[in-house]
Computed example of a mutant assay.
Amino acid sequence: KQKPGLLLFFFLTESGNQTAISKFILLGLSEDINLQPLLFGLFLYMYLVCVLGNLLIVLAISSDPHLHTPMYFFLTNLSLTDICFTSTTVLKMLVNIQTRSNAITYEGCLTQMCFFMIFAGLDNLLLTVMAYDRFVAVCHPLHYLAIMNPKLCRLLVLPSFVISVLDALLHTLMALRLSFCTDLEIPHFFCELAHVLKLACSDILINNILVYLVTSLLGVVPLSGIIISYTQIVSSVLKIPSAGGKYKAFSICGSHLIVVSLFYGTGFGVYLSSAATHSSRKSAIVSVMYTVVTPMMNPFIYSLRNKDMMGALRKLISRISASH
């Protein structure tokens, strides 16, 4: 039954037993009115840190010729993806809190869901590409620049983007065929595919099969690639006789390994929490980790552990200060 106070608009279709909806209701992380200013301030702060941090990474790499290497090319793409990834979910949440309206249009919900899957998938594939880059750097250092030439780098990033777009479009087009019931409340702060499917009145068997197949393929294959790359890296590092050489080899991969652990750790955490608890609201709170916190932490991880990046950031900040 529809809860009082919520304005939902429905239009009858020709079949008479289905409804064409115009809005969903995003319940957010909490319905407590007193918590809304706190949530707005917290998420605005995290969003600005995420955007400014990743933007500084992109500008620092672009302005320093010494950083025009394959590793930083992939890092630039990852930073841009993280900005878009966070913007897709957080901006709508901030607008809803500010306007005190939890509504999102049907078209807006599907659009947000589509872009969320594009950038989440691109994040996943870029981390896999970066693992391969680290594998070549550690295991084949003498041939690194020959193997990771600009053409190959572009060929690794472009298919990642195309695969992510096709995956998102496939799920979105399959969602368009669904009809929805009168209860259109999504217990989340953004439109996620799993929650949208739960609201459907029509048969979602094909959608669920597609989700399991594609998720298994785009989840298992990239993760397997990362594990294989790091298995080879560890094997090569252990053969290095000097302790200094081992430390240098591990330092090359340290930042990327931390980011991979955060991304997959928080992703699996959301999946396990949603399977273990019946509370969708708790699952939404946990999902903040991989949708907001992880993209926000990436610039710190890649800059604080990297002398070249810190040097480029200092030069960039000095140049900006001098211009003013």
Results as ranks from 00 to 15, higher is better:
Leu12Lys: 14
Thr13Pro: 15
Thr13Met: 15
Ala20Gln: 13
Lys23Arg: 07
Ile25Met: 08
Leu27Val: 14
Pro37Glu: 06
Phe40Val: 06
Gly41Phe: 12
Phe43Gly: 00
Leu52Thr: 14
Leu56Asp: 08
Ile61Gln: 05
His66Asp: 02
His68Asn: 11
Thr76Leu: 06
Leu78Thr: 10
Thr88Arg: 02
Thr89Val: 09
Val90Asn: 04
Met93Cys: 00
Ile97Arg: 06
Arg100His: 15
Asn102Trp: 15
Thr105Arg: 03
Phe116Pro: 03
Gly121Ala: 00
Asp123Lys: 15
Val136Asn: 05
Pro141His: 03
Pro141Ile: 07
Pro141Lys: 01
His143Cys: 13
Ala146Lys: 13
Pro150Lys: 10
Cys153Ser: 14
Leu158Cys: 12
Pro159Gly: 13
Asp167Ile: 10
Leu170Tyr: 15
Ser179Lys: 01
Ser179Val: 11
Glu192Ile: 03
Leu199Ser: 04
Leu199Ile: 03
Leu217Val: 09
Gly225Arg: 07
Gly245Arg: 07
Phe250Gly: 14
Gly254Pro: 13
Ser261Glu: 08
Gly267Asp: 09
Val270Cys: 13
Tyr271Val: 13
Leu272Gln: 11
Ala276Asp: 07
His278Lys: 13
Ser283Asn: 02
Tyr290Glu: 09
Val292Tyr: 05
Arg305Trp: 06
Ala312Pro: 02
Ala322Gln: 12
